[in-house]
Each structure stands twice: as structure tokens, then as C-alpha cells.
Design a protein around this nucleic acid. Structure first.
Lengths: 333, 333
DNA sequence: GCTCACATTGTTAGCGCTCACATCGGCGTC
DNA sequence: GACGCCGATGTGAGCGCTAACAATGTGAGC
């Protein structure tokens, strides 16, 4: 009760199975008339080529494996969606290997699973320290690209330019007239956090502004709220740059509770531009990473590795954009 | 330069390839000593079974295909993550076929792609009207489950109990003392919207409350904001139930702009319990669907179809929970 | 008319695995 | 002690496809 195979199509079209294969793969040397006859037979039988068989003989399936951790966070989820979209355009399917923790063992296991399926390439969304080590000790028999991974590793890498984004956010606040800018940071083991801290610090230094201590948090609104409660009680704080929009939301709420008005008394800038950011109270000025561009670059890097062994640029950095809304104003005089 | 195959392992272990296969598949009739020898050989050669070959001969790969539209919306993204997690626990990989529009052509194409890979089963997240038709005309050669799909179709279906959730949300507002409850609804072609409208209306009717007209929106904070601007100017409005949390966010901001205090003047309840809902201004009372339970049920339904042809219950409904926070109070007297 | 180049089609051999069946001991039974 | 049975292992075929090569047809050029 299996579906029709290539030979069935061949028989109906009165050709050999190999000709059917040629039609299917767009081989040039097939007479137009034959091609049409084969295509008609394909339609009539509702024939569907068996990818597994093809993968077996070619040793490679038209699938991109993605390894990611928590795909409900806005960043990873958007990236995954963009990857799917882009891969689909290139004729690839995307298989997701989600991982509870981004440690060496979990990542290796997920990559192994993908290798067992003979995927054409692997994208690892590896934004934390612990992932780095795993990636260097991986079998090299398949193209691999890291997204948001360790900038110091030698693995092909596509990443949002965290430093530039943070620099711009901070500079935007300084240009509004603030003496200095406080920073609520993401988890310490994320490269995203590190890059945003770096850009923030750099902008402050360049402007000759004092560098306050980093306020550590995770990515959640909850932790942003806790940090906000602290910042709200510090009269000298007039500008806050948070490592993402959800932190900003938590901060906004804490400030609101303490009666500190945004942006009149305190300005806030986020990072990510989640779709809701424009509807926070007040609408949030933030930094928008281009996830589609990241996905595009990742796939290009993968396909380049597939195509030849002379790989060009192994590192792509995508610049984000500052989106200006109403959460920034001059400091109170 | 291909990796080792089963025969290589067999040769090293001094057995036949079939014995290796038996060890790999946990067949009982293998002597312990033989099993150990084979396993040692597997480790030594770093052998990795070729899933494509297995899929070819069995006609089925250990992959679940998921068809979904916009996986950046909180609901679909959470569901996808939960599906991955659950599938992984059962030893299945998840391949995502994202679709730009949920119309018949797109869905058929996505399903066809999955069928070409000989997936073990397909989950379609089909929350809109246009998807329904496609699903009935699909080849039946693979188990298929719909999530959030059309309750009137005969396709196996797992769904969040939208009606119960909306009923509870509405009743909660009525019990707080409100005369009636307004509803900002999701897109008209989503079943989620329809179910939430139904539950809301039902609760109002049961309580003998007046049923105001539905305020139509999409799922975005932007449209919630627009609806909120309208509701803010209507003095008789004291309670609003929005079809999701992002709509609620938009409504909250509009109300804030118009100086209408929440919950003192107007109470608001959302749906979804996005992680940030607790940090809205004020923290949002909302309805939390159990995505993990939905994923679990979907997979169970799929595996049941795989196991036997006598399928039991073809419909599973997952009840959501009301999460009470500070956006609800008694109406102003 | 014959040759050669080239376009078109067919033939054959696996890819790495599972399934169905064959084989081979050892053990209990009468 | 011959028989049957069962657990452990091996053998052969074939899943549906592509790659390499073989075979045929077709027309240009002399």
C-alpha cells in the first residue's frame, strides 16, 4: 500500500526510471516531449519522490538542522522563524533540535541527532559561554554555522552587532543631555549580554561620562522589575539602557510604582523591538536587530560551505537599528 | 569518505550486520556478550546509524512534521516549543514547515513536503477557517492531528478550551460586580477568536447581563490600542476582556493616555499569560492555556494512530486556568 | 555514404538498512 | 537416543533512488 515509485511513473510514461529522475532533477538533456509525458504521468499517479531514498544515495538530505535552546524568548523565536522562511525559499526543510541546556553534552547530542539524519547543514544558536567548547570538538563532516555564538572561537559565525546597537542606544541617551547612563544587563553567560555591556561602556568612555556599575538581571520582565525598584530609589539615575525590551517593561513598571515619570524624570531604552514595545507606557525607544538578515547570512554561509571547500568570510555581523519612541527625553534640569 | 556503516561495525565485532541491527533496535534475542561486543565496536568506530536508510526500508522516518504559520506570535511559538520538547522525549525529531498563509494551497504544499520526507506524523496548527478545507482533502497515508483547528471538521483535533477560558474570564469580571463586560476580539477568521467570543457571550447570557457589541481587532498591541482609545471615551465601560494579552497591553496604554485608571475605573482581563503579563501596568489578570498539555495530547493522538487503526477519542480539549492579578477590581460606585 | 560529435535514453550497480526466512546448537521429552 | 522446540545468529532480497557508463539516434561535415 505504498505510494507509487519512480518505476511506476516510468512505466506509465513509457520511459526508464532514470529519465524520470532526470526530469525531476531538472537535467537539461531531456526532450521536451518526453519531459511533458513524464510530468503528466507524475500528476496522474500523484507521485511524490521519496526524499529518504535520495538522501540515502546522495548521502545528504535537503534539510537544515537547527539547534536552539529556549525558543519562546523573542529573539530565538524570531530567528527560528526567519531561518525557516529563508531555508524554505532555498528549498530546504528545517528540523529543530531543541535542547534543555546549552552545555557541551546536550549540544553534542543534538548535533549527533542531526548528523544521523544526514542533514545538509547545521545552524547552532549558541548565545552562551557553555556552548562554545562543544562546537570546536564536533565532527567536521557537515557545514556548521553558529548564530550569536562566541566571537573568539574559530567556528563560522553570524551575529547581531550587539556592541554597535548598545553604543547607539547609549549615545542616544547621552545626546539627549544625560550625564551618564545606567545599564540593566542580561545573564552574564550570554554573549549578547557581554556585547551590549561592551557597547554601553564604550559609548560612555568615548563621551567621557562616568561608568556606573552594571545592574545584573536575566532576560525576564520579573528581574527588570526588581532592578527597576532599586533604580527608582536612586535620585541620580536619569537614564537606563536595558539589555532587552522585557527588562525595560519591568523597569517601567517599577518606576511607575515609585511615581517616577518616564521620560520626564527618567529615560529608558530597550533592545529587541518586540512588537509590543510601541505600546508600553510610554512607547519604548529600542534597538531593532534584523533577524531576517541574520537568517539570510547564516544560510549563505552554510551554502557556501556546501558549494566549495574554499570558504570566504567566516564571520558576518548584522548591524541593528535604533527605533526612537517616547521613552527618551532630556533629563530634568 | 563516508562514515562507517553497519557492515563495518559487524566486521569489527565479528558478527553479521543483522545482529548489529538487532542490538541497535533493542531486539531481545541477542546474547549479552554479543551485545556488548557490538556496542564496543559502535563506540570504537563512532558509528552513527543512517536514518535515511532506515526510513527508506521502513517507509517511515522518526520525524514529526509540524505545519504552522506565524511562529513569532506567543501562542504558536510556545506550542511549537512544547511540541519539540515532547517529541524529543518520545524519540522523534520535529521538522517545521512554516507557511506564509494558512490557505488550502499553502497547507497542502507544506503537508506534501512533509510526506515526501516520509514523516511519521503531521501536526497542523490551523487556527483559521481557511485551513479547514485543506485538511479534509489530504492523503490519508500518514497520521495527522490538528491543533486549534475547526471544531466542526472530522479531523483529529486537540484544542485549548477557548470557550471555558473566556467564560471564566467574563464570569470573574461579573463576580467582581460589573454590570457587563466588553470584549475586544481577535481576527474574525480564527477559531480561537470565535471560541473566546462564544464563551464571553455565554457567560454574559447566563448572568442575565447585557451583551455589548464585539469590538473587533487582530492580535496586535497596535489594534488593542486603537480599540482602547474608543473604549476609553465610553463612560459606561467598566470591564474589558481582551482576546489576548497583547491586545490588553494596547488597551491599557490607551486607557492610561485617557487618564482612565485601571482597575479603579476599568477592569481588564487578557488571554495567554505571556511571561510579561505580570509586569504590565497594572499586572494583568489573564487566562493561561497549558501548551505543554496540548503538545502532549497531540503527540499521544498521533502515536495512537500510528500504533493501531482503532483510534479512540479523536478530540482532546485542554482547559485553561485563570490567573488573577491586579487589573480587576469592583466597578466605581 | 561514412564518420564523428553530441543529444537522448537505457542499464546496472549500489547507498545502508530492515524483513523474512534459513541455519545451527543445545535442551527437554517420551 | 531420536525428535521437536526455541533461542541465537546468518543470509538474501529489496526499499527507491542517483551516478556512472553504455547504447542508441541524429545531423553536420567531408
Amino acid at each position: 500500500m505504498r505510494g507509487p515509485a519512480m518505476t511506476d511513473v516510468a512505466r506509465l510514461a513509457g520511459v526508464s526510471h532514470q529519465t524520470v529522475s532526470r526530469v525531476l532533477n531538472g537535467h537539461p538533456n531531456v526532450r521536451e516531449q518526453t519531459r511533458l509525458r513524464v510530468q503528466a504521468a507524475i500528476v496522474e499517479l500523484n507521485y511524490r519522490p521519496n526524499r529518504a531514498a535520495r538522501a540515502l544515495v546522495t548521502g545528504r538530505s535537503q534539510v537544515i538542522g537547527v539547534v536552539a535552546q529556549n525558543t519562546t524568548l523573542y529573539g530565538p523565536a524570531s530567528l527560528l522563524a526567519a531561518l525557516e522562511q529563508t531555508a524554505a525559499e532555498e528549498g530546504f526543510a528545517v528540523s529543530v533540535g531543541s535542547v534543555r541546556d546549552l552545555d557541551r553534552v546536550s549540544i553534542s547530542a543534538a548535533v549527533e541527532r542531526h548528523l544521523a539524519h544526514r542533514v545538509a547543514g547545521i545552524v547552532v544558536i549558541a548565545p552562551v559561554e557553555s556552548a562554545g567548547e562543544a562546537l570546536e570538538h564536533l565532527p567536521k563532516d557537515v557545514p556548521l554555522v553558529t548564530v550569536d555564538g562566541d566571537p573568539r572561537r574559530s567556528v563560522p559565525l553570524v551575529t547581531v552587532d550587539q556592541v554597535a546597537g548598545a553604543r547607539e542606544a547609549t549615545r542616544h541617551l547621552l545626546e539627549a543631555g544625560h550625564r551618564t547612563v545606567w545599564h540593566v544587563s542580561g545573564p552574564a553567560d550570554w554573549f549578547d549580554s557581554a556585547g551590549r555591556i561592551e557597547g554601553w561602556r564604550e559609548a560612555l568612555r568615548t563621551a567621557g561620562a562616568e561608568v556606573p556599575p552594571v545592574v545584573p538581571a536575566d532576560w525576564s520582565a520579573a528581574s527588570g522589575y526588581r532592578c527597576g525598584q532599586m533604580l527608582a530609589r536612586m535620585p541620580e539615575v536619569t537614564a537606563v539602557f536595558t539589555a532587552n525590551d522585557h527588562l525595560a517593561l519591568g523597569v517601567l513598571r517599577a518606576l511607575h510604582e515609585y511615581g517616577r515619570r518616564v521620560p520626564d524624570e527618567i529615560s529608558v531604552v530597550g533592545f529587541d523591538d518586540v512588537p509590543e514595545a510601541a505600546y508600553f507606557i510610554p512607547p519604548l525607544t529600542t534597538v531593532r536587530p534584523d533577524f531576517v538578515a541574520v537568517a539570510r547570512a547564516s544560510l549563505d554561509l552554510l551554502l557556501a560551505q556546501l558549494g566549495s571547500d574554499t570558504v570566504g568570510e567566516l564571520r558576518q555581523t548584522i548591524a541593528p537599528t535604533l527605533i526612537s519612541r517616547q521613552s527618551v527625553a532630556a533629563p530634568p534640569s
